[in-house]
Simulated scan of single mutants.
Amino acid sequence: MSHSAVPSPHMEKRTNSETTISSIDGDLLYRGYPVSELVEESSFLETTFLIVQGNLPSQEQLADMQAVMSEAAVLEQDIVNFIERLPLNVPAIDILRTGVNLLALSDAYEEELSPNDVWETLQRLLAQYPLLLATRHRIARGLEPAEPRDDLSYAGYLYWSLTDREPSPLAERALDAFLILSAEHELTPSTYCARIVASTRSDFLSSVIAGICAMKGVWHGGPGRQAIDILEAVESPAAAPSIVRAVLKQYERMPGFWHRVYRTSDPRSELLRPICRDVALEVGKMNMEEVSSAIESAVWDEQQFLPSYDWPAARMLHYLGLDSDLFVPLFVISRTVGWAAHFIEQQQTPQPIRPRAVYVGQPERPFLPLSERG
């Protein structure tokens, strides 16, 4: 589509908080680098280093990071046993949140964390995230625990550990692109929650847990099952307009459309769209891509809204054979990188974040003793 979206009547007012981490005004930038170039030229781990450390890593720095993560890629047996005892109907996002809580119990920290402390904790957490998710996911499917794979990229190992399948070069690249595009996006609700916790001088993993709790909310959870349910309900592109109208009778917006900041298209959606289409072609899902295009046109005709990042992200993860229950946890894995950078940045400020509220309740009134209240 080549539409230009009209301003939404629901557009949020922006605050004037300052950050050096990312810019979502105009071109999407991480530390000054266009994200389009990072998706094309870098890897998730390189982008992680950039977002948290401020510059792209040298070969030696990247090798050191990979070595640290390889050594940290192990879960204590007590944590594995705890996850094994959880009911199988517990959502994967709750497994991830619980796992971080358990990891925090054994993570010693000083009252004042240095940026290097946060960096070291982030590397361990990124190494253990796939194990937390894969342990539960594989137990539920009768698979043996995932073994370390030094021959795969971070995205490739994440894919293999969750599917027990070797990723194709395209699948590995696609998941890597998803992780890069999801890693940071300024002051989203989850990032703001993480910064509030950081501003109280709490520890980094507490900030991560706060971010996960916010990310679990249906209004901020990243790619979800709803988009796939709608796509699967539309049997052909011709049926898209009627399905869209039916959905809009029940809901204000179509899942996967509209964004609270972007007045035109979401640049992450535009970057992921061609990769998503390539994956669909590789796995034989082009019919769903054609249905998706028809839905986009129908939503435009009805509301003049363009797809958000969630729309191609949900499709692409679905094409990769990943369960929808994993979509938000995968988003969390990536966004933890941004939370780490914001935690460090927030520590440079001298006071906690203390928003004010406008009181709109009852005016001052006299107190009546209990005996006079009837």
Rank of each mutant, 00 (worst) to 15 (best):
H3I: 06
P7S: 07
I21T: 08
S23Q: 14
D25K: 14
V35Y: 05
S43A: 03
F44Y: 14
L45R: 06
L50N: 02
L50P: 04
S58M: 05
D64N: 10
A67C: 10
V68Y: 02
V68E: 12
A72F: 10
V74K: 15
E84L: 06
R85M: 13
P91K: 01
A92W: 07
R97Y: 07
E112G: 11
L113Y: 07
D117A: 08
V118M: 07
L126N: 07
L131F: 00
L132H: 13
L133D: 03
A134L: 03
T135P: 15
R136K: 15
I139N: 14
A140S: 15
L143Q: 15
E144K: 15
P145Y: 08
P145W: 00
E147D: 07
Y154L: 04
G156P: 03
Y157K: 09
Y157E: 04
Y159L: 12
P169L: 10
P169R: 08
L170Y: 03
A171C: 11
L175N: 03
S199M: 13
S199K: 12
R201K: 11
D203K: 04
G222K: 02
Q226D: 12
D229P: 01
L231W: 01
E232N: 01
V234I: 12
A238C: 02
A240L: 01
P241A: 01
P241N: 02
S242L: 15
S242C: 09
V244D: 04
R245C: 06
K249L: 14
Y251W: 13
M254N: 01
W258F: 08
H259W: 01
T264N: 15
S265I: 09
P267Q: 03
L271T: 04
L272V: 05
R277H: 15
E289Y: 03
A298M: 13
A298F: 05
P307C: 07
A314F: 00
F327A: 00
L330Q: 08
I333W: 09
R335F: 02
T336S: 12
V337M: 04
F343P: 11
F343M: 10
E345W: 00
T349D: 13
T349R: 15
R354H: 14
P355Y: 02
P355W: 04
R356Y: 05
Y359V: 06
Y359N: 09
E372R: 11
